[in-house]
């Protein structure tokens, strides 16, 4: 078996279609496939349903007008609690929101990953999650207890995008940080999963304990090497979150003029241009810090 699944960022995004339901891995501002998200930002895709433990992925795609509906339990940048673009999109009514509890969200992915129509849980009962999702149904236990539980429908995805620390050319993916998040569930819940990675290696060259091998090639449709492709989110042991740049993003996103300048400077070119623009920004930023001292 020597079929390589290597793709470019543009090829991955070119295989997606408007109107799709797309799952995005990571958690908040942690290990998000931002290089792929930025490529969607630049694309002509629209009317997407984004399923995510949301961070700047959701924010950026809302800002670009790519999103019809967000399915999420939260959208946050972690060290910056609220995501400005998502807030603006909600407050202007620009996007629909399917708001789930975190446990419900995980059960929805688990159901999809195991080809079940739903999974039962107590999480969500009694809360307004049921009020704002009138399509949700409960199910009664068929056993003696007769308990009524929330039936979380499967969160089946047309495609999933995840970012891992390492992957091989066959599409096996490895995480080296402290938390797998839900990335393997996203992979299994999706018709096809695309893995971006910090570093691509040959088959058999994924070093580390076997339990770090999170995603199997059987679930991977394509793999793309995107060094620093998780920027500015936290990314495994290699790269901590770029807090200074995230603050710059969040401050810019909260103001239309500042955002126009940010988009022009960082998001008007391809991924290489983005990385170069960030490098220059840091140089300037550090010079300014130096002067301020």
């Amino acid at each position: 078996m020597n079929t390589s699944k290597i793709m470019t960022v543009e090829e991955v995004v070119g295989s997606l279609e408007s109107g799709m339901t797309i799952g995005i891995g990571g958690w908040g501002s942690r290990r998000k496939p931002m290089a792929l998200v930025r490529a969607i930002y630049r694309s002509s895709l629209k009317d997407l349903t984004i399923v995510s433990l949301g961070g700047a992925d959701v924010g950026l795609l809302c800002a670009a007008g790519k999103v019809r509906r967000v399915v999420a339990p939260f959208v946050t940048l972690d060290s910056v609690p609220l995501e400005p673009h998502f807030r603006a999109a909600r407050q202007s009514g620009a996007v629909e929101f399917v708001e789930y509890d975190e446990g419900m969200f995980m059960f929805g992915l688990l159901a999809a990953a195991h080809r079940l129509p739903f999974l039962p849980t107590r999480a969500g009962l009694g809360s307004d999650v049921l009020r704002v999702n009138p399509d949700l149904r409960t199910v009664r236990s068929p056993y003696d207890d007769g308990e009524e539980l929330l039936a979380v429908p499967a969160l089946t995805l047309d495609a999933a995008l995840i970012h891992l620390d390492r992957a091989d050319t066959r599409g096996n993916g490895q995480y080296l940080g402290p938390d797998p998040y839900m990335d393997d569930l996203f992979a299994k819940a999706a018709g096809r999963c695309y893995v971006s990675c910090e570093r691509l290696v040959g088959p058999g060259e994924l070093d580390g304990p076997p339990q770090t091998l999170l995603v199997s090639r059987m679930h991977t449709a394509g793999v793309v090497e995107t060094p620093n492709g998780g920027h500015f989110t936290d990314c495994g042991p290699d790269r901590a979150r770029d807090e200074a740049f995230q603050r710059h993003y969040a401050t810019s996103a909260a103001d239309p003029d500042a955002w126009a300048a940010f988009a022009e400077r960082f998001l008007s070119g391809d991924e290489a241009a983005y990385q170069e623009a960030v490098r220059r920004w840091h140089e300037e930023h550090e010079e300014q810090e130096e002067k301020a001292r």
């Binding site: 339990p73 939260f74 959208v75 807030r87 509890d101 975190e102 999480a123 809360s127």
Partner: peptide, 20 residues
């Protein structure tokens, strides 16, 4: 909720936490 004055975090794990 349909068009909030101020969007905050989202419900996060609060529904499950409180019922479980």
């Amino acid at each position: 909720w349909e068009r909030p004055k101020s969007q905050l975090l989202g419900v996060r794990g609060a529904p499950g936490n409180t019922i479980c």
